[in-house]
Simulated assay, not measured.
Amino acid sequence: MSPGDEHDYRSADRGGRSDDPYSTLGGTRQTRTRLPDSNAGHPQARRPARASRSLVMIVGVVVLLIAAIAFANRGGGADDEGSPGAKGRESAGSAPTAPTGTKPVQGRNGTIASGFARDEQGAQSAAANYAVALGSVEMFTADTRHDIIKATHDPAVVPKLQSDLDAAYSPSFYANVGLEKDGTPPAGLTFVSRTVPVGTKVVEMNDGAATVEVWCTGLVGLAGEGATKPVTGTWFTLTQKLTWAGGDWKISSSSQSEGPTPVNGDNRASTADEMADAIGGYGGFTYAR
């Protein structure tokens, strides 16, 4: 979560539910019930449905299921032209995240991955990992925030950015997200701030610079009984301008836009205790690709 991001990092409209394309019978969420036929007054009762038709339908579904499983499990070598990872980096459109044969980075700058490759894959990896770090709880504490900014940003922009962020993370901002004036959560509650990259896209790239969009979903709020700011989900896209500095990709500037936001599903909202247990039991990711 970024500076003052009550109006930046985590803004997302929550409009009312519209037609649900995934529901039954064209979104009406209704089912049809056929009452049994009666012979009284009807000399010729309705003929029963032919068993052969049902058998054909069942066989068809099974065949489609087998075909889908076979397609999903189809293997291919690193040089297989049919595999998503084999496409050239210059191919048009966004390719799905897939094994490419390149090992994950081994370096660490504090708790943040470092040593990304100087190519499209490396730029996307850096942007995704930096999005996770910049949307973390650690951004709400001055010392750890300073470390994150130094690890993710071009040294040329760090001093001014640090000053701007120190001013942005003010007592009034903390109060707005339900925290105490010093940025700590109220007693008995757990503060949640996580960014989860959903996908990345290289918009522009040359030898020493890249612009990468990171589509994200995020969690922010307080978990626990009596929380006045419950944990909510948001959707947003980060646009990071990266520069090659000191042997790694670093952020020179960034911006955020709302969405794309999917239609809300029918999932039951978890209780405060369930959410607190999940936050404490599931760790976040440090390497996204």
Score class of each variant (00 low, 15 high):
Val214Asp: 07
Lys229Ile: 02
Asp80Tyr: 00
His146Glu: 12
Phe140Met: 11
Gly4Val: 10
Asp13Pro: 14
Gly283Asn: 07
Met139Leu: 07
Val105Ser: 14
Tyr174Met: 07
Ala113Gln: 08
Arg47Phe: 07
Asn206His: 03
Ala167Thr: 14
Pro171Met: 06
Pro3Cys: 12
Asp273Tyr: 01
Leu189Thr: 05
Thr217Arg: 15
Thr28Ile: 02
Val212Pro: 06
Gly208Val: 15
Val137His: 03
Gly60Asp: 08
Arg14Ala: 10
Ile149Gly: 02
Val158Trp: 03
Gly115Cys: 05
Asn129Arg: 06
Thr31Gly: 07
Gln124Glu: 15
Thr239Pro: 04
Gly259Ala: 15
Ala113Val: 09
Gln162Pro: 09
Glu90Val: 08
His146Lys: 14
Gly199Arg: 14
Asn73Thr: 09
Ala278Gln: 12
Ser54Ala: 09
Phe71Met: 05
Gly26Val: 03
Arg34Ile: 13
Pro104Thr: 11
Ser2Trp: 03
Val192Leu: 12
Ala113Arg: 14
Asp5Ser: 13
Ala278Arg: 08
Arg10Asn: 12
Ile69Ala: 11
Gly115Glu: 04
Asn267Arg: 14
Thr33Asn: 00
Lys229Asp: 08
Thr200Pro: 00
Trp249Val: 00
Pro230Glu: 12
Thr234Asn: 11
Pro3Leu: 11
Gly199Ile: 03
Trp215Pro: 02
Gly183Val: 08
Gly88Pro: 06
Pro155Ile: 02
Gly93Gln: 02
Met275Val: 15
Ser18Met: 09
Gly122Ser: 10
Ala12Val: 06
Val105Met: 04
Met139His: 09
Ala126Cys: 11
Ala175Met: 00
Gly218Ile: 04
Ile279Pro: 09
Leu242Tyr: 13
Ile69Lys: 08
Tyr130His: 14
Pro43Asp: 09
Ser252Leu: 04
Arg17Trp: 04
Ala12Arg: 08
Pro3Asn: 08
Arg118Ile: 06
Ser94Thr: 15
Thr271Phe: 12
Phe71Ser: 06
Ala40Pro: 00
Val177Gln: 03
Lys229Gly: 02
Lys229Phe: 11
Ala209Gln: 14
Glu180Gln: 15
Asp207Cys: 01
Asp119Pro: 05
Gln124Ile: 01
Thr237Met: 02
Pro36Met: 00
Gly246Ala: 01
Cys216Glu: 10
Ala272Glu: 12
Gly107Tyr: 01
Pro185Asn: 03
Ser91Met: 05
Phe285Pro: 10
Pro43Arg: 13
Asp154Thr: 03
Gly265Ser: 05
Val157Trp: 06
Met205His: 09
Ala142His: 12
Gly218Glu: 15
Glu225Tyr: 06
Thr228Ala: 10
Leu134Arg: 15
Thr144Val: 03
Arg47Ala: 12
Gly107Asp: 13
Phe191Asp: 05
Glu6Trp: 01
Ala92Ile: 08
Val63Tyr: 06
Ser163Lys: 13
Pro171Asp: 06
Met139Cys: 07
Thr144Gln: 07
Trp215Lys: 13
Ala68Ile: 09
Gln162Val: 08
Leu222Ile: 10
Gly178Gln: 14
Val192His: 00
Met275Phe: 03
Ala113Ser: 15
Thr271Lys: 04
Thr33Gly: 03
Ser257Arg: 15
Gln240Glu: 08
Gly233Ala: 12
Ser193Tyr: 04
Ala133Glu: 03
Tyr130Phe: 15
Asp248Asn: 14
Ser257Thr: 15
Val231Asn: 00
Asn264Gly: 11
Ser38Ile: 06
Tyr9Thr: 11
Pro262Gln: 13
Phe236Arg: 13
Arg32Val: 12
His146Ala: 13
Val202Gly: 02
Tyr9Val: 11
Gly284Ala: 09
Glu90Lys: 14
Ser11Gln: 13
